[in-house]
């Protein structure tokens, strides 16, 4: 019997739309999970990113210090990292703030003093695509990516294993 695949999904600076795309595989999910175990995901209540992950789909750009740490953990513990969706691939909507810069964006969104508290993850100076922070093995563009594209990408990986 073939080995089961340890699959993870992660959510950095994104809108969760790409995860919706994944869920929109509908019945395809059942097929998928015949070969995979979901070992980490915002869709599952698992606190720690585990070691020895085979495949990770990463949604969202790298927009904060927390995102960067998470991306590095993912890279270290994962064999094959995939950028899922436009935010991870090129920054997309998350990167709309880049031309104005961090300070101008914060001032615009939180014009009143005290509107913004520093006890949330610190924003990075600029929002970066995932592959500008860690090495990425494959890209699934789209906003959100078509469920079929996600399904095919995972399938291709599964058959390669």
């Amino acid at each position: 019997m073939k080995q089961r695949i340890r699959l993870a999904t992660a959510w950095l600076s994104g809108c969760s739309g790409c995860h919706m795309g994944l869920l929109n595989l509908h019945a395809g999910l059942l097929e998928l999970f015949e070969r995979c175990d979901l070992v980490y995901s915002p869709l599952a209540d698992i606190k720690q990113y585990p070691h020895g992950v085979d495949l990770c789909l990463v949604e969202g750009a790298v927009g904060s210090g927390d995102n960067r740490e998470m991306a590095e953990v993912i890279r270290e513990r994962t064999a094959f990292v995939v950028s899922l969706g436009d935010c991870a691939v090129n920054g997309n909507v998350a990167a709309l703030r880049n031309p104005r810069g961090k300070a101008a964006t914060l001032n615009r969104v939180y014009p009143q003093p005290g509107g913004f508290t520093p006890d949330v993850p610190a924003l990075g100076e600029i929002v970066l695509p995932l592959h500008h922070v860690i090495a990425v093995d494959a890209f699934i563009p789209g906003c959100p990516p078509a469920p079929d594209a996600i399904g095919q990408a995972i399938q291709r990986f599964v058959t390669r294993m």
Binding site: V89, N90, G91, P99, I126, P129, H131, H132, F139, P141
Partner: peptide, 13 residues
Amino acid sequence: IDHVRYGFISPLA
């Protein structure tokens, strides 16, 4: 092209 290898210039336009 499924990703861009170069840094985004992000000009204020």
